[in-house]
Design a protein around this nucleic acid. Structure first.
Length: 293
DNA sequence: CGCATCCCCTGCCTGC
DNA sequence: TGCAGGCAGGGGATGC
């Protein structure tokens, strides 16, 4: 599933096709994804113009001209593609390229530009909801979300405060969206490797209760920011089903140092370790026992 | 409160 | 080639 870099890549791919366009019609091919679509979903979107497409954590947020915000989450296997209108495939006056609908195409947004934005999600762990701009922060999906790791507020000082006193392993703490928003299994593993910290380490132990962040917190904060920035630059990571809106694959997966590297040699200079896999909170963690402490 | 576990669902890979 | 089992990028509900 898409983590922050993949969602940001999707946002950048969709924005030019969606911003400034009017939504002519929305079609849901089923009543629910992970959750039921909210009441009036289709009707509230029809006729609206999309002002901008933003992102918060792993959520895409489309701001509409009536203060409505369309919230979209890709879950584990969600993707969007942009289908350009082709006369052959038109249905009536609209633009659904019906001949080209694929299995698991669940939502179709037909836009005034003549393109259709199609949401596909085999596992249906994704979901969509509607909110109001002025109260977006209080929306149940948004309320508890933590700091944006690429934003100005994020850095060693804030990270130290978030981790101080926390008794969970670093892996669990960094996966917790209420602390830092947008990290998932891949980038947590990669950021911990880059900062030479063990995912098993109790989070609070790298943030002793002094006023200033130590070396380890500084290293972790930098690693998180760097790995996310590099991954966005690479168009995200393509494993299994993730693709960009253009259908192209991201290529950051070729730069993984630990994720899905069980049994391979650690690539850190001078380290002779072998990458291990362990289970933490029911999910795979990859790390080097030799250089991550 | 904070944490681990289970579960939602489908597809793909492995091993028998 | 078929089939069962395990596993997958997220996150919400539950129970300790």
């Amino acid at each position: 599933m898409p983590e922050l870099p993949e969602v940001e890549t999707v946002r950048r791919g969709l924005a030019p096709a969606m911003e400034g366009m009017q939504i002519i019609r929305v079609t849901c091919q089923r009543p629910n994804l992970r959750f039921a679509f909210p009441d009036g979903f289709v009707d509230r979107l029809a006729g609206r113009t999309i002002l901008s497409l933003g992102r918060r954590a792993k959520y895409l947020l489309a701001d509409l001209d009536d203060e409505t915000v369309l919230i979209m989450h890709l879950g584990m296997s969600g993707s969007f593609r942009i289908a350009t209108d082709e006369a052959d495939n038109r249905i009536g006056e609209f633009y659904i390229p019906r001949g080209k609908l694929a299995a698991h195409d669940h939502v179709i947004f037909e836009l005034s530009s003549g393109t259709a934005i199609i949401y596909n999600d085999p596992r249906r762990f994704g979901f969509m909801d509607l909110a109001t701009r002025s109260t977006l922060e209080e929306h149940p999906l948004m309320r508890a979300i933590g700091v944006e790791p690429l934003g100005n507020a994020f850095g060693p000082d804030l990270l130290r405060r978030l981790l101080t006193g926390r008794k969970s392993p670093l892996k669990a703490a960094l996966l917790d969206q209420r602390l830092v928003a947008g990290l998932g299994n891949i980038y947590v593993c990669e950021a911990l490797w880059r900062s030479r910290l063990s995912p098993l380490r109790i989070a609070g132990t790298i943030a002793p209760d002094s006023k200033r962040p130590g070396k380890q917190v500084k290293a972790l904060a930098s690693s998180i920011r760097e790995v996310l920035e590099e991954a966005i630059e690479a168009g995200g990571s393509s494993l299994r089903d993730y693709v960009q809106t253009s259908g192209e694959l991201g290529y950051f997966q070729h730069r993984f140092c630990v994720y899905d590297c069980e049994g391979k040699p650690c690539v850190r200079d001078g380290c002779n370790g072998i990458i291990s896999r362990v289970t933490q909170s029911g999910r795979s963690t990859f790390y080097c026992e030799v250089c991550q402490v």
